[in-house]
């Protein structure tokens, strides 16, 4: 039972990081109908740039939390600028182009960003300096660190804030209108280009935060970390119903839980025939199963209508 609780905690932490990244995919998809394949690289740049600042300040005597906060404050605008730049360079000129054209520029962008990161941060893996307090709580035999609690709370707060932004503000209303029908939204006086830019800015800011969370929790950052993370988050976004904001959150959390419970119990469930090496198979299998019965994801009715 304690193992089970521990696996749930593992899954929730991983899942909330997936959710933050998945939001970036889903926001862009909702507005542009485009898979932003370079989003994972934004997470990577967020993680590495924050880490650079954090390492620089680690010996300065500032409290650990303040150092991490400064790191995040540097990474967020940087990633926002990056996201904005990606949209301007790789996607905006291709709005009228066939649907797969931006996919190729996105892949190209992803390769370019990886190589630039490699030139800048080198080929080595980077670890997170031990500046955060290593305290935590025991729940039975299970353990949750304060860092993980902070990650869960912060992710929840960010998601709640995003929901408020989308549902309660002028910007949110304009975003929803653009997602619904960009043409008519434009006629109604919504500046579509500004809204699209805003979407990329928000998604990239979330990516930066998620990047710092990954590197802090798993204590690792590398110029190639974005690809797999992006892939998983994209899967999560689809699982929840791509284009749907609450869907991305749900999809992220679910995928995290599926992965950790899958790795933890798949061996016992199959009598040792399948082990944790089939963790990803299990995750994709659940995804396929969900999509077979709900072809537009768990919460994706909106998209189904549009398709």
């Amino acid at each position: 039972m304690d193992t089970f609780i521990q696996q749930i905690i593992n899954g929730l932490v991983l899942g909330s990081i997936y959710a933050l990244v998945a939001l970036g995919y889903t926001l862009v998809y909702g507005i542009l109908g485009l898979i932003n394949f370079a989003h994972g690289e934004v997470v990577m740049i967020g993680a590495l740039s924050a880490l650079t600042v954090i390492k620089l300040l680690a010996g300065s005597g500032l409290p650990g939390i303040a150092v991490v906060a400064i790191g995040v404050l540097v990474a967020v605008p940087l990633c926002m600028a990056l996201g904005y730049g990606i949209e301007r360079v790789a996607y905006r000129p291709l709005r009228q182009a066939p649907r797969l054209a931006p996919l190729i520029t996105a892949i190209g962008m992803s390769i370019v960003l990886q190589q630039l990161a490699m030139i800048f941060w080198g080929r080595n893996y980077h670890s997170f300096p031990p500046i955060l307090p290593e305290t935590g709580r025991e729940i039975g035999d299970a353990y949750i660190s304060d860092l993980q609690i902070a990650i869960l709370l912060l992710a929840a707060a960010i998601m709640a804030g995003l929901m408020l932004l989308i549902n309660r503000t002028r910007l949110g209303r304009a975003m929803r209108a653009t997602a619904e029908n960009p043409q008519i939204a434009g006629l109604m006086g919504v500046n579509i280009n500004a809204i699209i830019s805003a979407t990329f800015l928000i998604g990239s800011a979330l990516a930066a935060v998620a990047g710092v969370m990954v590197s802090a929790n798993y204590s690792i950052a590398h110029y190639q970390m974005g690809f797999i993370l992006g892939l998983k988050a994209f899967t999560a976004a689809v699982l929840g119903g791509i284009g749907n904001v609450p869907g991305a959150m749900l999809g992220g959390l679910l995928l995290g839980l599926i992965e950790s419970l899958g790795a933890g119990y798949i061996g016992d469930l199959t009598g040792g025939f399948l082990g944790s090496h089939y963790q990803d198979v299990f995750a994709f299998f659940v995804l396929i199963l969900v999509l077979v019965f709900r072809p537009s994801g768990l919460m994706g009715e909106k998209v189904a209508e549009r398709a």
Binding site: V89, A90, P93, L94, Q96, A97, P98, A101, P102, I104, T105, I107, G108, M109, S110, I111, V112, Q114, Q115
Partner: peptide, 14 residues
């Protein structure tokens, strides 16, 4: 290689 992918698609989207 990455730049080439971007460049080609920008100038010849189809």
């Amino acid at each position: 290689f990455g730049l080439a992918l971007i460049g080609v698609m920008l100038y010849r989207p189809a």
